[in-house]
Design a protein around this nucleic acid. Structure first.
Lengths: 235, 235
DNA sequence: TAAAATAAAATGTGATCACAACCGCGCGGG
DNA sequence: CCCGCGCGGTTGTGATCACATTTTATTTTA
C-alpha cells in the first residue's frame, strides 16, 4: 500500500532569505510534486517532513494544508495526508479542464504579448529542449510549466493561473511517467507552433497549439506500457 | 480606506461537534464572504477574529491561510490580510471563467442526474424563491450556490468544483450588490430552464440555461446605479 | 496457529509564548 | 505649518507543549 515518507528523495532547494519558512517548504514540496518525485500513495506526515527539512512542524503544517486545499495532497478522514491516487476518469477530466482553462488563458494573454515576451518565451522553450537533451526529468516538467506560466501571466488581469496550477499539481505525480517516455516518442514541438501563432497574433492558431500541446502529453501517457497499473494504485 | 475588522457583523453558525475548530472558522468566514457580509477593503486580523469567535489564534490562522490560497482574501506584501477590491477587468474575467467552468461542470453532471436528483434540485430552487420572497439577502446567495453545487456534484468524478468555488469566493463580496437589486428586476428563472433541460437530457439547453443564469447575475450588477464606485475601492 | 485484546508509539490539533517587522501616534526640527 | 524621527502597541510567524485520536506492535487467548 502506501509507501513510507522516509524513503523520500526530495529535490532540495536553498531557502532564500526573502522567503518565509512556510513559503519555502511549500515551494519545495510543490516542486517535488510537480515533477513527480513524490509518487501517488505516499503518506506525508508533518513531523516527518519537519525532520527531513530541519524546521519546526509549524511551517510544514501550513504548507501541507495549502497543498491540500489546492488538491495536491488529500487529507483522509482519519487525518492522514497522502498523495492522491489517479483514476482514468479523474485523469481525463483533469486534461479536459487543462484544455478549457489554458486555451482561455492563452487567448487572454495574446493581446498583451510584446516582442520581448516572445523572446523570453523562446528562451524558456530552449531551456526545455536543453533539459530534454540532458534527460533531466525534473527540469523538463518544471521548465515546461515555466513556459506556460510566463505566457498566461502576460495578461495583467490573470485570474485563471491559480486554477491552472492546481490542475498541474494534481497531474504532477503522473507527469514523470509521461516525460520519461518523452525521449523516445518526441513529437512535434507544439511550443514552436504556439510561438508562431503569437508572432502572427493568430488567436485560433494559438488555441490549437496549446490544445495540441496538452493533448500530446495525454497521448504520450496513454501509450505507456502498463499505464493502467498506475491508475487506482499500484496494486 | 480599509475598514476595521471590529465593525464586522458576522453571520454566526453553531459549531457542530464533528467539525474541527479550524474547519468551523473556515466555513463561517467563507459563508460570510460568499454572501457579501464582509466588504472589499476590510482588513482581517488573526487575533481580532480569534477574539470575535472566541477561539485561539491558531485555527483562525489556518482558516485565513486557506481562504488566501483560494483567492478569497489577499495577503499584502506587508503581510496584512484584506478582502480584495474588485476591478472591472477582474470582474469580467471572473464571469468568463464561471461560464467556462460551470457549463462544463453541468454538462459533465448531466449523464449522472437521476429523478431524485431533479426532485432535490427543485426543492433547492424552491428555497431560493422562498429566500427571495423574504428578501433574505444572505440566504439567496447561499441557497443559489447550494443549487449549483448539488448539480455539479452529481458527477462522481468532479474536479472542477473547487475551482468554481474559488470563483464564487472571489465574486462573493460583490454578490450582495447584485442580490439587493434582484428583488426589483427579477428576471426569467433560469433554474427552471436548467431543470427542464435536465429532465429532457438536453445538453445544449442545459449549457444555455447555466450560461444565461450567470449572465443574468452579471447584467443585474452592471445595471446597479453607481456600480463603478465599487470598482477599485469605495474611495 | 490465528484472531482478539492490550500496550506503546506516532500523529494532527490547538494553545501559549517569544520575537521581529510593521503601523499609528506624538514629539521635535525645519 | 509641515515633514521627518522615534516610541509603544499590534500583527504575523515560528517554536514548544499538552492532549485526544489513531496507528502499529506486542501480548494474550481460544
Amino acid at each position: 500500500m502506501g509507501s513510507r515518507a522516509s524513503d523520500l528523495r526530495l529535490l532540495m532547494i536553498d531557502k532564500p532569505e526573502s522567503l518565509k519558512t512556510h513559503q519555502w517548504v511549500y515551494q519545495l514540496l510543490r516542486n517535488n510534486l510537480l515533477c513527480g518525485r513524490i509518487e501517488p500513495g505516499v503518506a506525508l506526515t508533518i513531523r516527518g517532513l519537519a525532520e527531513i527539512l530541519d524546521v519546526s512542524p509549524m511551517p510544514v503544517r501550513e504548507a501541507l494544508h495549502r497543498l491540500a486545499c489546492e488538491g495536491a495532497v488529500e487529507v483522509k478522514n482519519n487525518r492522514r495526508v497522502i498523495v492522491p491516487r489517479m483514476t482514468a476518469e479523474k485523469f481525463a477530466e483533469l486534461c479536459d479542464l487543462r484544455i478549457l482553462l489554458e486555451t482561455h488563458a492563452a487567448e487572454g494573454a495574446l493581446p498583451h504579448i510584446t516582442d520581448s515576451d516572445i523572446a523570453e518565451l523562446e528562451r524558456l522553450d530552449a531551456r526545455i529542449d536543453q533539459a530534454v537533451d540532458q534527460h533531466d526529468v525534473d527540469d523538463i516538467a518544471l521548465c515546461n510549466q515555466d513556459f506556460h506560466r510566463y505566457l498566461y501571466c502576460a495578461n495583467p488581469n490573470q485570474i485563471s493561473l491559480p486554477l491552472i496550477e492546481s490542475l498541474w499539481l494534481q497531474l504532477g505525480p503522473f507527469s514523470r511517467i509521461a516525460i520519461s517516455k518523452l525521449e523516445k516518442v518526441y513529437l512535434v514541438d507544439r511550443h514552436v507552433e504556439a510561438l508562431d501563432a503569437l508572432k502572427q497574433r493568430n488567436r485560433p492558431g494559438l488555441r490549437r497549439a496549446i490544445e495540441a500541446d496538452i493533448r500530446d502529453g495525454i497521448a504520450s501517457i496513454r501509450n505507456v506500457d502498463g499505464i493502467h497499473d498506475y491508475f487506482r494504485g499500484v496494486a
